[in-house]
Every structure is written in structure tokens, then in C-alpha cells.
């Protein structure tokens, strides 16, 4: 035969896993970009439109924020990370049961499919957030107070969502009805996650109750990292990190339990 037959490169452990994840990531990206040249515009469009609409509604409602905070930016940067959290949980938790046929490729693990999908979602929302930041710098002359901290805040939302997606995804394998609760759950999470209001505006009792939700800490931190001392934030980062660690460990354990229960014959 005249054609040269491709050969695999030998490699081990971490490098192999990075390779698998990047292959899945590229596949996910190409699929979601679609075949059109402006596919990436559409990928951004959904969170962008949602973020813009919500923010416009709030800024047109005429209620001013304290300390001259720019209304549009306040809502856009509050909502988009929450949107990311929600889509990672919604889409990511489906990665377990939707991708069974990929597991015919021995190299792919459930964790790989999960990471690839959620990484994609995260990068889309990070880009949208950055666009809002650039818009804020140009239109409102707002420069992020602590850019690195802001990035860390977004990253914490993503990790929290990733862990939760793994927990829900593996729970779905054992209890199918869990699937139906995911959307209502993420929807109801919105009002108690403080993306649209500040804890400083609330009475102390409510504030303390809300701080049980790790997303609230992240959103408060994000606002301070963006707007600086015009905000009086309330957050507990070790508490958030404990949630991230807990959910991710539980999620990875869950995937291990779910894997042998996955069946094509169901």
C-alpha cells in the first residue's frame, strides 16, 4: 500500500490526558462554532444578549445605585458570571449521559468529557465578561480595581459549577429524575445568589443567611474587585474554597461510582 500509515506517539499519564481533553475541547468548540465563518460570534451572542438585556432593563428602570456605580456595568458583570455558573451546571451535568458512545474510545474518561465541555463554557463566558470590561473602560471609564482578583472570582464560580455539574451528572446515572430538577434549581438560585444586589443593602440577618450560599461570597468579591471601595463587600473566601474542594472531590468520586453503571442498553 502506497499510503503512509499514521503512527501513535508513545506517551504517558498527564500528557496523554491533556491530549485527550484538548481533542475533546476542539471537537466541542468546532461543534458549537458551527460551520459558518462567524460561528464564534453566535457562541458569544447568547450570553452577551442576555447580559445586555438584563442590564439595560435595570439601568432603564431609573433606580440609581449608591456611590455613582455605573448601572449597566454593575448588572452586566453581576449577571454574566452567574450565567456561566448556570450553563456549566446545566450543560455539564448532561455530559455524563450524553456522551456514552465517546467511551468506546478507551482513552476517554468521563472526567475528560466533563472538563472539556466546562472549559469551553468557561472560556466563552470569560470572553463575554472581558468584552463588558472593555466596554466599561471605553464608555464608562471604569478600570477594574483588582483585575487578577476579578479573574480569580470568575474562576471560582467556574470551579464551583464544575464540581456541582459532576455531582449532578453522576447522580443522574443512578436516579434519572434528578435531570428534571437541574433547571428549576439553577433558576431558583438566581434570587439567592446576589448577582443583582449587594449584601450591604440588606439587613444583617438576611445577609448572614445569604452568605451560606458560596456564590454570594464570589459575587461580592467580584464587585469589590471591579469597583473597589465604592462597594462594602461581605465575603468568606476560605468558605468558598471549602465548597469548591468538597464539590469537586464528591463529583470525581461520583463519576467513579457512575462509570460502571453506565449502560448502552438502557
Amino acid at each position: 500500500m502506497s499510503i503512509e500509515i499514521p503512527r501513535r506517539e508513545a506517551m504517558g499519564g498527564a500528557r496523554a490526558q491533556i491530549q485527550v481533553i484538548s481533542a475533546l475541547f476542539m471537537r466541542e468548540m468546532l461543534t458549537r462554532f458551527g460551520t459558518s465563518r462567524i460561528g464564534y460570534v453566535w457562541l458569544m451572542a447568547e450570553p452577551m444578549i442576555l447580559g445586555t438585556m438584563i442590564s439595560l432593563l435595570h439601568s432603564l428602570s431609573g433606580k440609581d445605585l449608591p456611590n455613582g456605580l455605573p448601572t449597566f456595568l454593575f448588572y452586566a458583570l453581576g449577571y454574566t458570571p452567574f450565567l456561566m455558573f448556570r450553563s456549566i451546571v446545566n450543560r455539564g451535568s448532561g455530559a455524563v449521559t450524553n456522551n456514552i458512545s465517546l467511551l468506546f474510545h478507551n482513552r476517554i474518561t468521563l472526567l475528560d468529557t466533563m472538563i472539556a465541555r466546562n472549559l469551553m463554557e468557561m472560556l466563552v463566558c470569560f470572553t463575554v465578561c472581558l468584552l463588558f470590561i472593555v466596554m466599561g473602560m471605553v464608555v464608562f471609564h471604569e478600570v477594574p480595581h483588582q483585575p487578577a482578583l476579578l479573574l480569580a472570582g470568575w474562576f471560582m464560580s467556574a470551579l464551583l459549577a464544575h464540581g456541582l455539574a459532576m455531582v449532578i451528572g453522576s447522580a443522574q446515572v443512578m436516579m434519572e429524575w434528578v435531570e428534571h430538577l437541574v433547571h428549576p434549581f439553577t433558576y431558583l438560585l438566581l434570587p439567592i445568589s446576589a448577582p443583582f444586589y449587594m449584601l450591604d443593602m440588606l439587613p444583617q440577618g438576611t445577609r448572614e443567611a445569604l452568605l451560606w450560599n458560596p456564590l454570594v461570597s464570589i459575587h461580592e468579591l467580584n464587585r469589590w474587585a471591579m469597583f473597589g471601595d465604592r462597594i462594602n463587600p461581605y465575603y468568606d473566601i476560605p468558605y468558598v474554597l471549602a465548597w469548591i474542594l468538597g464539590l469537586n472531590l464528591l463529583g470525581m468520586a461520583g463519576l467513579r461510582v457512575a462509570r460502571p453503571r453506565l449502560s448502552l442498553s438502557d
Partner: peptide, 24 residues
């Protein structure tokens, strides 16, 4: 078998996926 083949992608893109996946 067409496992992991994405029908919205081209034959070339699917080939690239397999190449990336198996390190070729």
C-alpha cells in the same frame, strides 16, 4: 463504528479529532 463521530463536522474535522485523541 462511528463512535464519537460528530455529524455536524466535516470528515476532515472528524479525522483531526481522532488524530488528536490518539496522539497522531
Amino acid at each position: 463504528g462511528g463512535y464519537g463521530i460528530q455529524s455536524s463536522l466535516t470528515g476532515r474535522n472528524n479525522a483531526r479529532f481522532i488524530a488528536r485523541l490518539y496522539g497522531m
